[in-house]
Simulated assay, not measured.
Amino acid sequence: MYLCDKAKHAGWLCFPVLRRAGADRRPVLPTMFLQAMLTRKGCLYGYANADILFDESLAYSLESVLSSKVLEESALDDQPLFVTSRRTRVKNVTRSDAVDLVALRKKCEEKGVMDTEWAEDVFITSSNFPWITLPDVVIGLASYDNWLVLRANELSRRTVDIFETTLVVHQSTETDDLDRVRKVDFYNRRLITNMYGAYNDQRGRLLCTYFISN
């Protein structure tokens, strides 16, 4: 409750996790989106892993996406919008780095490493994205992120990677790669395969979105 109280004090709304799945009962991503949509009416809804930091460039990028004439002309207005981004991995981000955007950007320039096109920790969609139809994939485990980009491309031509214009910082540690190996769990892949059949992760890389920001 301590973190929830701090978040509320900073102006955030906090909700209990309504649905969990998998062996270690992780939060179900589609349910998180649906809960937010029922609580607040808006044009965009988003999720990012807890170890991700942004600066104001996220807002500028999303404003540009929403006002893009290219996106308007590329697809029917009723097609859902799906936005994601590559991330910059920065080791040992301090508390002072996290609250000082100038310091954060400087640390990214000096020590940041652009992650591969396989790593996706940010998902932002329009309210008409059909989260209710998707399987109960859970956050923090492999295989759902690339499939989600693949599925978004099947549903719409309005898929955008905003990494060129957005600072997305992944707070990394020396043990990240080891921790990732230790928690290999194929819950998401089994779930998706049972529902949709086998799929190719390569079709869900960040290079596969229809558009990139610039």
Rank of each mutant, 00 (worst) to 15 (best):
S156P: 15
Q202N: 13
R20C: 02
L3N: 11
N214M: 12
V184W: 10
Y60F: 11
S68K: 13
R180G: 01
L38F: 06
I132S: 13
D161S: 14
R87F: 01
A23N: 12
A103E: 07
D24N: 09
E110N: 08
L71V: 04
C4N: 06
T133E: 13
Y210W: 07
A7N: 08
Y47H: 15
L76I: 01
L34T: 05
F129C: 09
L13T: 12
T39P: 03
R86Q: 06
Q35V: 00
L141T: 07
V149I: 15
I124M: 04
G22F: 11
T31K: 14
E73F: 08
L62M: 09
N153C: 07
F82N: 14
S74M: 06
V138Q: 06
R205F: 00
V65C: 10
A7P: 04
C43N: 14
P80I: 03
M37V: 01
Y187W: 04
A198H: 09
F163V: 13
I132W: 10
A36R: 00
I132V: 03
A75N: 10
T84H: 03
V99C: 11
A198L: 05
V102H: 13
A48I: 10
R87N: 05
S127N: 13
N153P: 06
D179T: 04
Q35I: 00
V113K: 13
D185R: 03
V102L: 07
N200L: 02
R89K: 07
F123H: 10
L62E: 15
F33T: 02
L104T: 02
V138I: 15
Y210N: 11
W147I: 08
L18G: 14
D24W: 04
A103Q: 09
V160A: 07
V93K: 09
T133F: 02
S156T: 15
D24C: 02
N194L: 12
W147Y: 09
F211A: 04
T125I: 09
R189Q: 14
S213T: 15
T165H: 12
P30V: 05
A152H: 08
Q171Y: 02
T39Y: 13
E56F: 05
Y210L: 04
R182G: 03
G42K: 10
L34W: 03
L104Y: 00
F54I: 05
Q35W: 04
E110K: 06
L38T: 05
T193W: 05
L53M: 11
D201A: 00
V160K: 15
P80E: 06
C208L: 01
E154M: 05
D77P: 13
L178W: 10
L141V: 08
H170P: 04
I124E: 13
M32T: 06
Q79D: 07
C208R: 12
D55N: 14
E109K: 11
D176R: 00
T125A: 13
L62G: 14
A152F: 01
F123T: 07
L66T: 14
G11I: 02
S172V: 01
P80F: 09
T209N: 04
V17D: 03
D121V: 01
D161R: 10
K107P: 10
R158F: 08
R40K: 09
A98K: 08
K69H: 06
Q35N: 07
R189H: 10
H170L: 01
L191A: 03
S85G: 09
V99T: 13
Q171C: 15
R157N: 15
W12V: 03
T166F: 09
T94F: 01
Q202H: 13
L104M: 08
F211V: 05
S57V: 07
T159V: 10
W131Y: 12
